[in-house]
Amino acid sequence: MQHFLRKTVAVFESLGDRSLDSFERLGRSTLFLVRVFKSIPFVFLRPWLLIQQLYSVGVLTIVIVLVAGTFVGMVLGLQGYNILVRFNSESSLGTMVGLTLVRELGPVVTALLFAGRAGSALTAELGLMKTTEQFSALEMMAVDPFKRVIAPRFLAGFLSMPMLAAIFSAVGIYGGYYVGVYLLGVDDGAYWAQMQKSVDFHEDFMNGVWKTVVFGFVATWIALFEGYDSVPTSEGIGRATTQSVVNASLAVLGLNFILTALMLETS
């Protein structure tokens, strides 16, 4: 009996411990974000810092986004055609490919790829800088690492995401076009006309863009915080990198549901 009691107490203890831990992390990550925001104006004085990060965050992610976007678009073309042809409405293929990419798959899949490629790299880089005392060294050189290191990376991630998602959707639409029009014989004009008729600028395109803005913000924030907050050992960096990808992906998928619900509500 006493044994059972002790076990129960232990369960509650670890639960409480973990809750407190996550609360503390939430607080620290918020403070982190505040410091990042305060440092952002500095980046505009040093555009070269931003350009470097746009390269490592944006340019290096382009290839994977191009390849993934093309294949996703082609699969949409193939699947969409096979579903629509049952209702004799394969001319609506453009609508289906366009809406799916612009509203959902473009923002979400790009954000997941972004978290896996750019986010993990950011986390590992910051983790390594922490392990090798580079943050302390900057502090000792009277340089604020938030201004020099973190804010440019944040801004680069935030700016890259919408562009990457747009590239993803654009090549996806051409991928679907290739499969639908060239391989399966959907009418060329119908593909574009049907798409243009039913993809609304505000309701579909702009809502998609807003999603990418939110995802870029959250994924970059999580990646940078995990790196900055990592335990400064090689094991710690590994764990932080995994955490960064997992947390960013889950946050993106969860937020996607919330954002979609909100957007459908107001339309």
Partner: peptide, 9 residues
């Protein structure tokens, strides 16, 4: 391209 060619802007 998405704004002009895909959506109805």
């Amino acid at each position: 391209m998405l704004a002009m060619k895909v959506s109805n802007l």
